[in-house]
Amino acid sequence: MREQNKKAALQFKNVDFHYKNTEGKIPILKNLNFSVADGEFVSIIGASGSGKSTIFRLIVGLEALTSGSICLNEKAVDNRSGKVGYMPQQDLLMPWRTVQQNAALPLELKKENHLDRKTVKNLLEAFGLKGYENKYPHELSGGMRQRVSFLRATLSGSNVLLLDEPFSALDAMTKLYMQEWLLEQWEQQQSTILFITHDISEALFLSDRIFVITETPITALKEIEVPLERPRRQQDLDKKEVTELKNNLLEQFRTRV
């Protein structure tokens, strides 16, 4: 298993948040606390509309906290735009940019153009996109587009990556392949990943810990340790303690629907 130092990469401290609409306030988070360690892989699962994406939107600064604070690397940061790598629910590539230009966007926006060519070229190769540098998004498969989008998130230069259901649109085979690929990248880059998914098997296969959202407004996340060593293989999901855990989780969601 990969070594984890105890430092926290991301922390929520007494965070309150509500959306406003014409009828009034819709509370989503109430005095929420949680912490993700540096180098950890954490999945968030919860019913549709339970507030998973909202947690990400708060972290990247697209929504403003009502109260409380969010810490990055143990420091409270108020303006977090540009400070966390974010891969939104769709791949969101720009159709007028080539693979390389899409991936390099964060560098370009930070005016770190000197990094563009070499870094991006090498990374594209590492991400299995060699030979596709100058292709446009519509010429790629779904899995490839996800990899470009993931590379772009990586290039934001942050050690914290937020991935919002990145594989939900992929077919089962590609999905399995991408999961293994993602673990490889994570191990190489030593990043901290927060991963939203609807797929319990996916969460079990990938994560060190799983955060389960049991109710909205969210007052606490139910934290579950995944009892699996690394490196993992898909077969490991058939182990008894894992199948039990899985059935447990499924049961919880069934009663809630």
Partner: peptide, 8 residues
């Protein structure tokens, strides 16, 4: 929003 999160 993506541009915003990248600090554009």
């Amino acid at each position: 929003e993506l541009f915003q999160t990248l600090g554009a």
